[in-house]
Nucleic acid binder design. Structure first.
Lengths: 241, 241
DNA sequence: CGGAACTTTGAGTCACTTCAATCGGTGTGG
DNA sequence: CCACACCGATTGAAGTGACTCAAAGTTCCG
């Protein structure tokens, strides 16, 4: 398995020089398959290497002292799982697969070496800035919208993000989440998650069954939560820098 | 006005070479004072330069379609206000001062030049990773805690962040927020913000009046929300990289 | 066929919201 | 020096969105 998905991802943030590309592709990445539902990074883990998701779907989460769980991000192919381990020896949150995944391993000193290349460091910085932007939007989502709106917003976001990586077919895509996990993402109880989902279904906006989301009316869904995709920075058009 | 606050901030993320320091200090930064309560970056603005807060207190926020406002971050001296404008021509959120501030301006092409230096690019990446970490914690805060716990958590965070930059005296510090702004940060109505604040006060944990927070019992406050400061990455100890 | 995990639904309760009014401090003009 | 306006803080009361508890229905898999 090679670093192609990863290189493509970096390129989305700006031109990667031929030299850098060569460097990355020559870097043999160790790769492993991980089964669905396996928390492969746990809060507190000391990490000797950094993970890149090559295939599948994963999420970041924290379990608070109260035992409640909050999912704070979804990880798509090409994404770094734990760039943050660059600065902290121990992981400050956990990561679990949500379906069968392929994950590449980069030794930490290898990563340090990568960062000496301005082109790569810049691409990682940009990638981190977009993640920040998504996190800020989630904060607004959790703080200011009601249950149905929150859910519509999450589905809109995932629709656009999956679409851009080519994973949407006939307006539907794999979103391998249980309703409990959906609730942990939106800060809702399981029961209320179920009832909010029903409302969206009854408005003929979507169906969501066995980990597959089918969007019937994306315009309607966007309207429910006043969705605007600018925060996803999809166009890929960058100014200078 | 020079870039000292900024250099000190970068140094917190790892050694900055003498050459880089010289480069930064030689860079004459244009600096302006901005009065309290002035939104100096507005969502949609096309930015020709990047801002660094040198002195004061500011916040990021978004106004949703519904008119509701969400504050998504507080900006302290030394922080970049809009590193994200590196990747997007237009700002995707607004920033306002919360008290009188001093702000430095860096032309965008100057910043692009800075990023060609691996040491600086790395420091900015690290800074961005820590911001991400804080955003993730806020997501957990908004999603999983009740009003009183949320508020306690925010106060704990600000206590530690202000302390590390030397702005805490006698367990109290300037937090120039109205209760309405506090509510917009925590996703609470003004009325409930006031009532939650009262509960914390009645437990003799703190006082909060005219933009000044006095922490009477930090251990008690931490206990209310099960606060753990690891996500702030305060120690500054970094592994390789 | 049995069990586990997930989904669905109903009922009662509570945290938080909205509406509405008052109170206090501060600045301004007469 | 007082009257007035303004803004933020405070409080009470009523409404509601989301929660918890409880139970039954479904789907999937060994």
């Amino acid at each position: 398995m090679n670093a192609e998905v990863f290189i493509r991802k970096l390129e989305a943030f700006g031109p990667i020089s031929e030299d850098d590309q060569l460097y990355l592709s020559r870097m043999r990445l160790e790769c492993r398959r991980i089964a669905a539902g396996k928390p492969f990074i746990k809060s507190g883990d000391i990490l000797g290497h950094v993970h890149i998701l090559l295939d599948g779907f994963a999420c970041r989460y924290k379990v608070l002292g109260s035992g409640r769980r909050q999912i704070s991000a979804f990880i798509l192919p090409g994404d770094f799982c734990d760039a943050h381990s660059l600065i902290l020896k121990a992981a400050d949150h956990s990561i679990t697969t949500l379906c069968d995944c392929a994950v590449a391993y980069v030794a930490r000193d290898k990563l340090a070496e990568m960062l000496e290349r301005p082109g790569i460091a810049k691409a990682l910085l940009f990638s981190s800035l977009i993640e920040e932007s998504i996190l800020r939007e989630w904060i607004g989502n959790l703080g200011q919208r009601n249950a149905v709106q929150k859910m519509a917003h999450l589905f809109c976001e995932m629709y656009f993000r999956m679409k851009i990586v080519g994973l949407v077919t006939n307006n539907s895509f794999e979103l391998p989440l249980s309703q409990a996990e959906l609730g942990d993402t939106l800060g809702l109880s399981l029961v209320h998650t179920n009832k909010s989902l029903r409302k969206l279904r009854e408005q003929n906006l979507l169906t969501f069954r066995s980990g597959k989301l089918h969007v019937l009316d994306i315009a309607g869904l966007e309207k429910v939560c006043q969705f605007s995709s600018t925060y996803l920075h999809l166009e890929g058009g960058r100014p200078s820098g």
